[in-house]
Design a protein around this nucleic acid. Structure first.
Lengths: 122, 122
DNA sequence: CGGAATCCCAAAGGATACTG
DNA sequence: CAGTATCCTTTGGGATTCCG
């Protein structure tokens, strides 16, 4: 990069790199969909399909760092940590749910298009 | 992966991996925002800030493969190729614009939160 | 002009082991 | 339990060159 003088769209560009990440979106949706607003680390680990413990840690840290998630640490033995969406994080949820709904609606058509494309052009 | 028996959320998971990609979102938005519905390769290359020729090719191929973009090839000399959103691709745009609008609105707050976080915890 | 192919490096991310 | 640290493999993606 550093070839164009950082246009205005660079803010979008930068956020897409982090927020557009697969795990980020899935973790936020999981936090939003669960009945209880606060979720424990191990629960998220189970419910976000396929995420590794490392990526969940990294993702939650990034979200906390940007003010989208609040981390509640309880200094007990064994320790208990809960995560919940901040008001700003919660305000992002509708956009993500719209995105997720679009996927659910068009998933079959996209897979069909992909198969058609693949049989035609080898 | 292949540890959990591929739950229903795997569709979201799978699409996020491709559609959630940074370049994919930026290319779709560029195709949607330009006044002319059809855009030439070289124009997209210029307008999508920072994208390499390789990634633009890969991204457009993937979008075409999934039925979100239509490729118009004109066998002239020199050849001319135009891309435009399919109806399905266009139907995704509102969701992405909502996402982009959220980013524009909350960008400053996120950067502020990030700076606050960074000075506190070294 | 609009790619495709190759090369190659840097970053992402999984597996494992250890700790407060 | 909720991480952190390390290692190591896989992937992303830029640079370059060549082709229709």
């Amino acid at each position: 990069m550093a070839k164009s003088p950082v246009p205005a769209s660079c803010s979008e560009h930068g956020v897409m790199t982090s927020l557009g990440d697969k795990w980020t979106i899935l973790v936020i949706l999981q936090l939003a969909r669960a009945p209880e607003p606060r979720q424990r680390f191990s629960r998220l680990r189970r419910d976000v399909a396929g995420i590794s413990q490392r990526m969940l840690t990294v993702t939650l840290r990034m979200l906390e760092r940007h003010g989208l998630v609040v981390r509640h640490y309880h200094a007990e033995v064994p320790p208990r940590v809960e995560y919940e969406l901040s008001p700003m994080g919660a305000s992002l949820v509708p956009a993500l749910e719209t995105f997720a709904a679009w996927i659910a609606t068009h998933w079959d058509a996209m897979m069909q298009a992909r198969d058609d494309y693949d049989v035609q052009e080898p």
